[in-house]
Design a protein around this nucleic acid. Structure first.
Lengths: 217, 217, 217, 217
DNA sequence: TATGAATGAGCGTTCATTCAT
DNA sequence: CATGAATGAACGCTCATTCAT
């Protein structure tokens, strides 16, 4: 075995090790996602406080005890659920914004994607807009941590807008972010509370225009 | 506020007065308010899920059973609490806006009043922004009903602005209302979650400017 | 009202107050003893680990929740049970020993009473000799505290015997107490494990003689 | 030990040897002892009720399922543990008593050995004196069966003493055995409950003297 | 033999509500 | 009106045991 083969085998070993470590993560096992998806459905249909662990287990097609092989406790299902879905969402939005450099158009994409995601998953919309908020302050803090990732995207868009000169130069990023997120969130919650009976994706352009131009004539 | 909206608000005020006058309900007895105030303190200090009826009774200085002479059940305490406080809030805001006819200045007053109310009552801020939302969908629907009274004030301001020509003429009142309320609410919640450690009343002008002028340059 | 009547009424008040305070003690309410007696029966018949709180409640004729008005938790039932019964036992033994000054005869009374108590309450015997010991170290420490009261009686007898010269003068009280209690306890446990199928009270004299005279000729 | 008891003990030893030789059981495989030793450590350190099978398996360095290749169930680990250790203990005591024919001196050896064994194995002392007793009546009965082997040794000593005339001639062997064992056991348990903070081996002579001479002057 | 992921039965405790006084 | 003792339904979580690999 010469020096090269040593190096090669070193890398192969490394790759295998990495792969092993990764597949050993609970998050990558099929039952992890299986339980999360079951939780979304059960919580959406029954509300968080009527979603017994046994109900989620049944929906996921596993035993009650199996839940606890993948999640620390019931709360952890909720947090993991949000982590998982929000992670996918942020990745998806970043993907859609790729190539677009105009902050105002980026904001358009962001709003459109946000509403589209909610419209695409009836159950997830209920869970994120209503049920997730019924948890106590501790969970809410953890959820907020996950939300940060999304708010970071908003911040990037806003900062880009200021730097490129399309947004007002003395913009208070923190306040602006709260307006953007607060507005989108309020529109979404109202839509869910009204049983999603109208097409939320149609509200995107109006919201976008309001945020960009404000109320005044 | 234009003549029409004045008339509308006059009737609303009237309706409320009439209801009060006609019913001579428990609402007017001292223990009613005593229990509600106790609930605000207990919920703010212990969180919604640790606020047992017995704890509220103790804080109010009455027996557990007495609660049920004034409220149908625990939910009813929550809804009544919100009704009571929101009623006072709306009355107060209307009072402060009296005489001001410029919608943009009315909005300024509304935002300022909203933040001032939260800053004035530490406990109430926690309860309305965090704890009240931990209730289930049914209660949330009832709370939303109570909230309507406040949103009506926002609508009046917006309609006034459109009619008087200071706000954009094709304004979608519903969306604009959701932006205004969503933004104020998000700012308030963020402030409470951060333990009210900065002065929220100082954020009023910035928020007002953002809502009126939008993000763009 | 003269000075005397003042004093009298003062005492009457005192007596009432004391009585009130006493009857307000959970221990003196009928349900306290009711639950303890139920626990003795249920635990004796099912074993501690198969004695669900609901089973004890049913036997006591109260609701499950009522248990928790009188006891902190399931463990607390066990400890209180032992406290109550051991307290009665110690009082009873002291009563029977009243007037007897000879330590050797006092020991006879003590052994006889101990065995008699066990023979008198079939269920209690099982609970004290077997089930009580299945608890963890924490409970055992608490139980030992209660037991101290009994061991104190043994100590008194032994000290009396040494002082009056009927027992060996260089007696190690601690070791002697452990021999006396250890022996009585072992005899009792063996009897219970053998389903109480012989008359334990008949063993008293033999045990007494052995303890007093030892094994040697 | 007189000739007869020697013969008896010879047969007992023989029987044990034969059983071992004939069966070629799991008992002789290394993992059997490995698991038992792990159980002693885990139970001593965590208490009986916190000693999950999985914890014992981990300590033993085997998989959970492997436990069930060597033991029928969790109970069986306990009983086997006691069997194994008590067997060693009895063999050791018999060895130490070899050659000694005076019953009173045999008793001295027995007590000394008993305390020495406990002092030598910190963990085993906790397990036998405290944790093993937290099991239910069924296990206790089985443990008592194992204990018989030890009690047999006590009986032999006592019978020897009566026959050789050093112990009182009308000695009730059963009661005397219960006094001897009950006393030793109580002393041992007290020592363990007090965290083994004094030297139990120093108590041997005092206990021996008390048992032999009794309490009286 | 050995593994360890999966199973699912089992239970102590809380607390909103009632009702006899 | 007011009390507060009593009620009892409801559920998250653990862990001994199994069995496919």
């Amino acid at each position: 075995m010469n020096d090269y083969s040593f190096i090669i085998s070193f890398f192969i070993l490394n790759v295998n090790t990495v792969r092993k470590v990764m597949t050993h993560l609970k998050k990558d096992k099929p039952k992890y996602k299986q339980i999360i998806d079951a939780a979304v459905v059960v919580i959406a249909e029954n509300g968080y406080h009527h979603s017994q662990v046994s109900k989620i287990a049944k929906q996921a097609g596993v035993a009650d005890g199996t839940i606890y092989l993948y999640f620390k406790n019931k709360e952890d299902i909720l947090i993991s659920l949000f982590e998982e879905k929000m992670g996918q969402f942020v990745t998806s939005i970043r993907g859609k914004m790729t190539g677009e450099e105009d902050a105002i158009k980026q904001l358009e994409i962001l709003i459109k994607s946000h509403f589209q995601m909610l419209a695409d998953d009836h159950h997830l919309a209920i869970v994120t807009q209503l049920e997730l908020r019924q948890s106590n302050k501790d969970i809410r803090l953890k959820i907020n941590k996950v939300l940060k990732e999304y708010l970071l995207v908003v911040d990037e868009v806003l900062k880009n807008g200021v730097q490129s000169g399309v947004l007002t130069e003395d913009l208070d990023i923190r306040l602006a972010r709260q307006m953007v997120f607060g507005t989108i969130d309020e529109v979404a919650t109202t839509w869910v509370i009204n049983d999603q009976k109208y097409d939320i994706t149609k509200l995107g352009p109006g919201i976008h225009s309001l945020l960009v131009n404000g109320l005044k004539k």
